[in-house]
Design a binder for these strands. Structure first.
Length: 451
RNA sequence: GUCCCCAUCGUCCAGCCUGGCCUAGGACACCAGAUUUUCGAUCUGAUAACACCGGUUCGAAUCCGGUUGGGGACGCCA
């Protein structure tokens, strides 16, 4: 049975690049009816912690990338690595060595200072590398050839007794029966080292597929410097997981037929490693925003409303108690105008303000352009209006406009300013309808006192 | 520095494997127009690319070589 794995190290929250690696592994497994294994590479105690693991698991869950097996934790498997290190030692394929001068003699700025470095507790196990050619048939890149003469002897077990990444990785992939290793391009140079281990242990070498990295607009790997690089940051801004997954999939892969909006299920149906690009992809927030807006627009209003609640609370527009129906009507009015849900706080505030608004100079100027008499007429007519829907409200307004021989905008712009303190926004009559008679009339009366 | 990977519109992809259907297609962004009470959304249209040089061939974006450019890896990190 075909088996792939996603093996993040919990040294940070789930990065977009890692998420995409997880996604492609997931798609490949599902497309081929194989298994998707999750393994946490937490051998580095200094940089791993439980909360980070939980966060990564939560992010994967949110993305809908559920694993079929695992999560396994490397920190719980030390004995397995030791066993195979000992085997290689016994077979003379590896040797032991004490740490050489613990004081870093060169390029120390690249090393993270760590207490580990200064107190070697035991001897490291080191693998002997013999010169040879190593060929890899990469499922994405094709054949790649390496010369192991370029590779130094490799540490298998560190002097503190923990395994190195490359060794633990090979042992685990073999133990777990991983058949296909799909990972980032940055691992290409680890591949020959790992193949050497497979050969020394007489294990079958799995198939490899190295996918291109995600780059940031200026070039270079997508990094913190760019801005939001973690899956969690996008969730917190109100991106829908389907949109993020869709966007990530489009980076380096495309379904047949020039399609842009593709569900996970459709991706699985269409996925093929041979169609994955070899070229790096630059992260483009504009396209993600567009996709997200598309998904928000298509989603059910109820769902979007539920997702908007925390953002409205954060913006202190609502508290623990709120009128969900009112929220739903607001979201229905605004959901076509958001790139991400956090924007609801900025565009919906006037629905929750008290009658008396803090008008900007610009809004006040617009308000003053409309005659006092017209304001009074407006208040009266709206107060008397029984069926407060957008259609009826428009009828009333149009009558006033006609009766006073005005242009539409001459009433509409001041009215919008008076009710929302904004010069832009959704259709005014719908806005008024959603705001409701009471709030509308109260606010207009407030305006009356200031003229 | 050494090794490795990559190269189509500004960006993401299609086409490349299996040369001719490519006067290179779609999407995002940008620009213009339409629509609208405003903004947005939507619709229509426009601009825009096969990095360069050589080879193979009747014919190359597609195959081969080189150059240039970009990226990655060279840890007792993962």
């Amino acid at each position: 049975m075909l088996k792939v794995r996603f093996a993040p190290s919990p040294s940070g929250s789930l990065h977009l690049g890692s998420a995409r690696t997880a996604l492609f592994n997931f798609l490949f497994a599902k497309a081929k009816e194989g298994k998707f294994v999750l393994r946490i590479e937490d051998t580095n105690r200094q940089r791993s912690n439980k909360e980070l693991v939980e966060k990564i698991l939560a992010d994967l869950h949110w993305l809908g990338l559920h694993c079929d097996e695992g999560p396994y934790f490397q920190s719980e498997r030390i004995n397995i690595y030791r066993k195979y290190a000992k085997q290689l030692l016994d077979e003379g394929k590896a040797y032991e060595e004490s740490r050489q001068s613990p004081v870093a003699s060169h390029q120390s700025k690249h090393r993270e200072p760590s207490t580990e470095n200064r107190e070697p507790k035991g001897k490291a196990v080191i693998f002997k590398v013999h010169p040879q050619k190593i060929k890899v048939k990469d499922l994405i890149h094709g054949e790649i050839e390496f010369d192991s003469g370029e590779i130094k002897d490799q540490v298998l077990m560190k002097s503190d007794g923990s395994p190195t990444y490359n060794f633990a990785c090979v042992v685990d992939d073999n133990e777990m029966g991983i058949t296909h290793i799909i990972r980032g391009d940055d691992h290409i140079s680890n591949t020959p080292k790992q193949i050497l281990f497979y050969q020394a242990l007489n294990w079958q070498v799995p198939k490899f597929a190295h996918m291109p990295l995600i780059m940031e607009p200026g070039g270079g790997r997508l990094s913190k410097r760019y801005g939001a690089t973690a899956v969690g940051e996008y969730r917190e801004k109100g991106y829908l997981s389907e949109a993020l997954v869709n966007y990530l999939a489009l980076l380096g892969w495309a379904p047949a037929g020039n399609r842009e909006i593709v569900s996970l299920t459709e991706m699985i149906k269409n996925f093929s490693l041979s169609k994955v690009n070899k070229t790096k992809a630059i992260f483009n927030i504009d396209k993600l925003n567009w996709l997200n807006a598309q998904y928000i627009k298509q989603a059910e209003t109820k769902r979007i409303t539920e997702l908007c609640v925390p953002f409205l609370q954060e913006a202190q527009l609502i508290s623990e108690n709120y009128d969900f129906d009112y929220l739903e009507r607001i979201v229905n009015l605004l959901k076509g105008r958001m790139k991400y849900l956090a924007q609801i706080g900025e565009i919906a505030d006037y629905f929750f303000s008290p009658a008396k608004l803090n008008y900007s100079a610009e809004a006040m100027e617009k308000i003053k352009k409309l005659d006092k008499e017209v304001w009074r007429e407006l208040i009266k007519q709206l107060t008397d209006l029984d069926n407060f829907d957008a259609e009826n409200i428009e009828k009333v307004c149009r009558q006033i406009i006609a009766g006073n021989k005005m242009k539409g905008g001459e009433l509409i712009h001041p009215l919008r300013a008076a009710l929302s303190n904004m010069s832009v926004g959704p259709g005014l009559f719908e806005l008024i309808s959603v705001l409701g008679k009471e709030k509308t009339v109260d606010r207009l009366k407030e305006v009356g006192t200031r003229l």
